[in-house]
């Protein structure tokens, strides 16, 4: 029971850690942004799994149904997803500019170029 009841959260934690690992350890900037996306999605899944109610249905009012899943996290995550699109787009735009300025999107090469200029 405990394993089944908490399985969701463990998946969320695992995804979050994979995302964190990509952000810390990978040098490629595009991959870092993918990692950030994975991290974000894990938070989304966390919220949505909080809102799930056993035997409840989607929160659209209909006759004969009394149990709905919690609509509040849905609202929060709905807007968060669109904002995540905005941040991803902004991040990728920055990556494109970095590529143009440094000729590379690898962290170490950028660092090397910076050191040379100093």
């Amino acid at each position: 029971m405990m394993i089944l009841g908490l399985y969701n959260y463990w998946i969320v934690v695992a995804l979050m850690m994979i995302g964190l690992y990509i952000v810390i350890a990978q040098g490629n900037l595009v991959k870092k942004i993918v990692g950030l996306n994975i991290f974000q999605t894990s938070v989304f899944i966390f919220y949505i799994s909080l809102s799930k109610v056993d035997g409840g249905t989607a929160p659209i009012l209909a006759e004969g149904i009394s149990l709905y899943s919690n609509p509040l996290p849905h609202v929060l995550i709905l807007t968060a997803i669109v904002v995540s699109l905005a941040t991803t787009a902004l991040g990728l735009a920055l990556v494109v500019r970095i590529k143009e300025a440094y000729g590379s999107i690898e962290e170490e090469k950028i660092q090397m170029k910076d050191d040379q200029e100093c």
């Binding site: 595009v30 942004i33 993918v34 996306n37 999605t41 989304f44 899944i45 949505i48 799994s49 809102s51 799930k52 109610v53 409840g56 249905t57 989607a58 929160p59 659209i60 899943s69 996290p73 849905h74 995550i77 709905l78 997803i81 669109v82 995540s84 699109l85 991803t88 787009a89 990728l92």
Partner: peptide, 27 residues
Amino acid sequence: SLFITMDAVDVAFTEASVGAGISTLLM
């Protein structure tokens, strides 16, 4: 699809169009 199984249809809708569509395209 995971969001659909957890009854969050609106969220699933958004994620399918944003996560699977537009952000992949931008990448």
